[in-house]
Each structure stands twice: as C-alpha cells, then as structure tokens.
C-alpha cells in the first residue's frame, strides 16, 4: 500500500492536485509542444515510445492498402463490366468471403499455412537491414490485412463502376465511337475513383484499428500492441498519448483523402 505522503507527492508530480480545466490546458499545451509526458510503466517519454513503433504501423497499413488496391480495383472493374455473368458472381462471392474475415482469423490462417506448415516465412517478424528480411517480415501481416482491403475495394469498385457505367456521359462516349475498353478506363473508371477514394479513406481508419490484431498474431511491434500493453498495465499517460496519436492519424488520413479526391475531381477546388 502506498503511503498518504507518497500519493500526495505523486499527485503533485502528475499535476492531479490542480483543477480539471487547468490540467486539460496543461495537457493540450504540452501535447502541442511535443511533450506528452513519460510512460507510467517504463518511465520513458511517451513520444519516444510511440515514434518507435509508428513506422511499423504505417508500413503495415500502407503496404496492405497498396495490395488491396492493386487487387481490388481490377477485380471490381472486371466484375462490373461482366455484370451478372459467372465472373461477376464469382468475384462477388469471393469478395464477400474476404470481407467476412476478422483480421485475426486471416492472420492465424496465413500464419498456420505459410509459416508453420510450409515454413516459407518466419513465425515471428524480425527486422534487419536487408530487403529480403523486410520482405519476409512484412508479407504475411500485409497479406492478412490486404486480403480484407482487397475484398472491400473490390466491392466498392464494382458498385461504383456499375453506377458510373449507367451514366449518360458513358453513352455519349460510346456515341463518339470510343471503343469499349477505352470507355471503361478513360470515362468510367476515372469517375468511379471518386466514390472509391471516399470510402477507402474511411475504411483506412478501421484498418489502422484492426492492425492491432495482426500485430498480436505476428508478434509485430506497432501502435496496436502498444495500446493493448498500456491498457493492461493501466499506463494512463501512455493511453493519453495513444489517443492523441490515433486522432492525429485520423485527421491525417482525412486530409490525404481530401487531397486525393481534389486531385481526381476537377469540381473540387484545393485551397
């Protein structure tokens, strides 16, 4: 049991003896100046702890997004132009299945198949300088998230393409004599990108949350593992910092989404 004196000292050190608004202002002020306090468990600055793992999470999210877009957009377009044919049904059911995976289930299955059974990849991600090692450490985690991303992007692309393909300007392009593949690429896909960007931007936030599951399965450092650790150990200063960083990430992702949308849509003026 802590003595009354040491508790008072701790309260003073943490500034808990002051009024709530004062504490809040203090927190905002120091958060803005980059001082997020020290972890109550390790004693190291919260900023340092977060900045150490942040690149891992960004890397994982970025690679899985690329994988998802690289697979999802062509599949979605393919399904849409073959609407109600066998291809379309197959893609729809497959993407629905992909979307049904909880992130940890896809991770567990990939780990079991490719790391434990086939032994193509290490069970635990290690990080060293070489490209080969990087590839080995990122592939399975990125695939497990990328699979879900791909399924999602496929569905969004398909429905956006179906919508766009029935637009009047697609008919106009055909009336000009533009060949069908060019109509699909130049006229339809460019317009379909707009809803895709919006929806994927929102989904990215969810996926950053889901990466916690991937990190646990592959025992990979990242924000998710950090926050779970902080929750288990009731490391409140760390949690505070984590909430700030997640909020910043959300704001940043929104900004990227807006910029991408602005680039794709001439009707939106970038300021």
């Amino acid at each position: 049991m802590a003595s009354e004196e040491s508790l008072t000292a701790l309260r003073q050190r943490l500034g808990l003896d002051r009024s709530l608004p004062a504490q809040y202002l203090d927190f905002v002020g120091s958060a803005l100046s980059g001082d997020w306090g020290e972890s109550m468990v390790t004693g190291r600055p919260v900023v340092t702890e977060i900045m150490t793992v942040l690149p891992w999470t960004i890397e994982l999210t970025a690679v899985s997004l690329l994988l998802g877009a690289a697979a999802g957009i062509p599949l979605g377009v393919w399904a849409a132009v073959n609407r109600n044919r066998a291809v379309d049904y197959a893609v729809r059911v497959a993407s629905l299945l992909g979307l049904s995976f909880p992130a940890f289930v896809s991770a567990v299955i990939l780990l079991l198949a490719f790391a434990i059974q086939l032994r193509w990849f290490p069970v635990i991600s290690a990080r060293s300088g070489s490209v080969g090692a990087w590839f080995q450490s990122i592939t399975l985690p990125a695939l497990s998230l990328g699979l879900i991303m791909a399924a999602y992007i496929t569905r969004v692309t398909r429905s956006a393409m179906l919508e766009v393909l029935s637009e009047d300007y697609v008919r106009t392009a055909r009336a000009k004599g533009v060949r069908w593949p060019v109509v699909v690429r130049r006229h339809a896909l460019r317009n379909a990108l707009l809803p895709i960007i919006t929806v994927v931007g929102l989904f990215l936030g969810i996926q950053i949350g889901n990466s916690v599951l991937t990190e646990i399965v592959f025992n990979r450092p990242g924000l998710g593992k950090l926050i779970v650790g902080a929750l288990n150990q009731r490391d409140y200063t760390m949690l505070q910092g984590m909430m700030v960083i997640y909020t910043l990430i959300v704001v940043f992702v929104n900004m990227l989404t807006d910029i991408a949308y602005g680039l794709a849509d001439p009707r939106v003026k970038l300021q």
Binding site: L202, G205, I206, I208, G209, N210, V212, L213, G224, I227, V228, L231, L239, M243, Y246, T247, V250, V253, N254
Partner: peptide, 15 residues
C-alpha cells in the same frame, strides 16, 4: 465517431 478506429475505441471503453 466513424473516422476513429472503432476497434481501438471499443478496446478503450471495455478496458
């Protein structure tokens, strides 16, 4: 609420 990673929010609330 929609933009914030929902799993993280759920985690924190339950914890």
């Amino acid at each position: 609420l929609l933009a914030f990673p929902s799993l993280i929010l759920g985690l924190v609330i339950v914890a």
